[in-house]
Amino acid sequence: MSHEKLIYIHPAPVRVWHWLNAAGIVLLVVTGFQIRYAEILNLMPLKDSVSLHNFTGFGVIAAYFLWLFYYLSTGKIIIYFPDPSTFVAKAVKQVKFYGYGIFRGEPNPHVMTPENKFNVLQQKAYLGIMFVLLPAQMISGVFLWKVKGYSDYIHLLGGIRIIDTIHVLFFFFFTSFLVVHCYLATLGHTPLAHFKAMITGYEEHH
């Protein structure tokens, strides 16, 4: 491995956000399961899991604003927006790669650069997650944290049952996504390559 093959893809603020967010999401998933299935799970007392869930939730919200501030202030937010004119063709290529080419050892059709680190499928997925699902999860979480305090907004949105349903469905989605995300991260040139890159900031170019 030579240094010429290393590309600085993940700047420090992104890495800090990523790992804060990752730790937060894992804690939220664990405490979330404990809260919803208190009669089955005994990982920790329910009141502690609620407190930890709330505390972690605000940590993830803070990390989100770190992410948002960094990407907006640097203008790099654009990397989350796929080019509509080439999206379909690139998406088909990427799907073919994940579903077929990768098993044959073919190279990834998307070449990662600091300006364009996501493939189109990642762009589309992260766009939805970062701009719709995560904000919805954060807002619904804050409402559930202070049901009485936000009762006017909750009533306006159809009631606590609706807010909870959104929060729970997205909770399951994020849990499922976490599993898939961790697996996809093993699809680098070695299973740990992308994990290392998210620590050092450098992706190895092959």
Binding site: E39, R161, T165
Partner: peptide, 11 residues
């Protein structure tokens, strides 16, 4: 729609 006891009355 306007009542939910965490875990206790879940759908």
């Amino acid at each position: 729609r306007h009542f939910y006891a965490l875990g206790g009355t879940r759908i």
